Amino acid sequence: MPVAVGVIETMGFPGTLAAADAMVKTARVTVVQYSRAESGHFFVAIRGPVSEVKRAMEAGIEAAEKPYGSEVLTYYMIPNPPENVATVLPVDYTEAAEPFR
């Protein structure tokens, strides 16, 4: 089954939290990474089947704009990422994420 990676970066933590919540509630995806990108910028990365990641990204982008002061800075989806991209960048499935796949 083709797998995709989706990433949303927001200004402020509440937007990232709202995006992650909406994404996992909307589609069959797994949060694989969350972190602070730089001062005040946060990102959340998900993985799952291509069609599910596409749906989840749409819901996450919409939800991330709702909290007061939050703003979606950028987002991107990679369908079928090469193995070296998924392994080297912080978007590979981890042991901690395994129970939620």
Rank of each mutant, 00 (worst) to 15 (best):
M1G: 04
P2R: 14
V3W: 04
V3R: 11
V3Q: 13
V5K: 05
G6H: 02
V7Q: 06
V7L: 14
V7D: 02
V7C: 05
E9Q: 05
E9Y: 04
E9R: 00
E9P: 00
T10Q: 01
T10L: 00
M11K: 13
M11Q: 13
G12R: 09
P14T: 09
P14I: 02
T16L: 03
T16P: 00
L17W: 02
A18T: 03
A20Q: 07
D21I: 01
D21A: 03
D21G: 11
K25Y: 05
K25A: 12
K25I: 07
K25F: 08
A27Q: 02
A27F: 09
R28I: 14
T30V: 14
T30Q: 09
T30N: 09
T30S: 11
Y34W: 03
Y34T: 12
S35Q: 10
S35L: 11
R36Y: 01
R36E: 11
A37P: 00
A37C: 04
E38M: 02
E38K: 03
S39V: 04
G40M: 03
G40W: 02
H41E: 06
H41T: 11
F43P: 01
F43Q: 02
F43G: 00
A45F: 05
A45M: 13
I46W: 01
I46Y: 03
R47Q: 14
G48I: 08
P49G: 12
V50E: 14
V50H: 04
S51L: 04
S51E: 15
S51G: 12
E52I: 05
E52F: 00
V53I: 09
K54E: 15
K54A: 15
R55Y: 07
A56S: 08
M57V: 15
M57G: 07
M57K: 06
E58G: 02
E58Y: 04
A59S: 14
A59P: 06
I61Y: 00
E62S: 12
A63M: 04
A63L: 07
A64H: 05
A64S: 11
K66A: 12
P67G: 09
Y68M: 02
G69R: 05
S70C: 02
S70P: 09
S70A: 14
E71C: 08
E71I: 11
V72L: 11
V72A: 03
L73A: 07
L73I: 15
Y75R: 07
Y76M: 13
M77N: 08
I78Y: 10
P79T: 14
P79E: 15
N80G: 09
N80S: 13
P81E: 15
P81G: 09
P81A: 04
P81V: 13
P82E: 12
P82N: 15
E83W: 05
E83T: 12
N84T: 08
N84D: 15
N84L: 05
V85I: 15
A86M: 11
T87W: 10
T87I: 08
L89A: 12
P90Y: 06
P90K: 10
V91M: 13
D92Y: 10
D92L: 00
Y93L: 11
Y93N: 01
T94L: 11
E95L: 11
A97F: 06
A97P: 03
E98G: 00
P99G: 13
F100E: 08
R101L: 15
